[in-house]
Write a protein that binds this DNA or RNA. Structure first.
Lengths: 153, 153
DNA sequence: TATGTTATGTTATATTATAACACTATCTGA
DNA sequence: TCAGATAGTGTTATAATATAACATAACATA
């Protein structure tokens, strides 16, 4: 994956941060939830529910889909992962708690999904909502194309 | 559906427009494709592939999933419908050929999906792409929440 | 009419996700 | 400390969404 020199660090950081957030919110960061989040980050790129399932199976015997989806639901609800609807895949949130609107730049070549926030974007969306008297609950913006690394090769 | 006084008109308009576009591009606007597009518009709100399948089944005997998905692929490729990834559903494009970036305001109460374009939004996305040296191929923005009609009730 | 191309039919199956109910672990207050 | 409540997980089954692969038909054009 591009731009990630010490990947084990980002996994550790993400897990530690999740731990903190859960503690602060009095949520249970169970083994399964930790394992799922770790796998999401290990992949460092969107990962599919059934891939998580497969990889977890070697750690936890005979794990079943509902278990994985429940853990993902928990992580989604608490802003620790995002779902990329256009891929049916999940990616770790690199700044949990801080985001309101996030978007993804998804490279169709290398598969990287870069998570970003942008104040202008948030403003535009806010403006659109106001204009339409719309109460925003959730926003999903996915931009797919070719990343700089890939089309410069 | 809100704001649609003569719905049969918008269906007819959409079909006529599709006909024109296909003729101009030398594409075959077959019976199945027309039927699928008509159903998408008849619903006037996002419709699911298997609902199309079911409704078509009364018109065309024993229609199968691939047939529906192929028609949808054709319509998607040619900008006549949009896919709403967060719903796994499809909606007619109300201004085919004209849109570059489109977004949807999806009401979780009444199910309406309002399709809109916005120059500011396009600009912001363009800016983001440039900043990241990213070549945009496709953008999907879905804003879900409560529409004005619904939360004023 | 022969030929290539595009569209559709058909069977089977892959992929993604959830319902429903049983059981276990953890927490809370008496 | 134990009784009940709540949250989490196990398990079985199945629902919902989507595509692969190959056969046939329709259409376009030389």
């Amino acid at each position: 994956m591009h731009n990630c020199t010490a990947h084990s660090d980002c996994i550790a950081t993400a897990l530690a941060e999740a731990e903190e957030i859960c503690a602060a919110k009095d949520l249970r960061f169970t083994d399964i939830r930790r394992n799922v989040l770790e796998l999401v980050w290990t992949n460092h790129g969107p990962i599919k529910a059934y891939d998580i399932l497969e990889r977890l199976d070697s750690r936890i015997a005979a794990i079943k889909p509902p278990t994985v989806y429940r853990a993902l639901d928990f992580l989604l609800e608490n802003g620790l992962v995002h779902k990329l609807n256009s891929l049916n895949a999940f990616a770790g949130c690199s700044h949990p708690l801080k985001h309101s609107e996030c978007y993804f730049l998804i490279c169709t070549q290398c598969g990287e999904a870069k998570e970003c926030c942008n104040a202008d974007l948030s403003d535009v969306i806010l403006g659109i909502a106001e204009e339409n008297k719309f109460r925003v609950q959730h926003t999903t913006l996915e931009i797919s194309g070719e990343c700089g690394e890939c089309h410069s090769l």
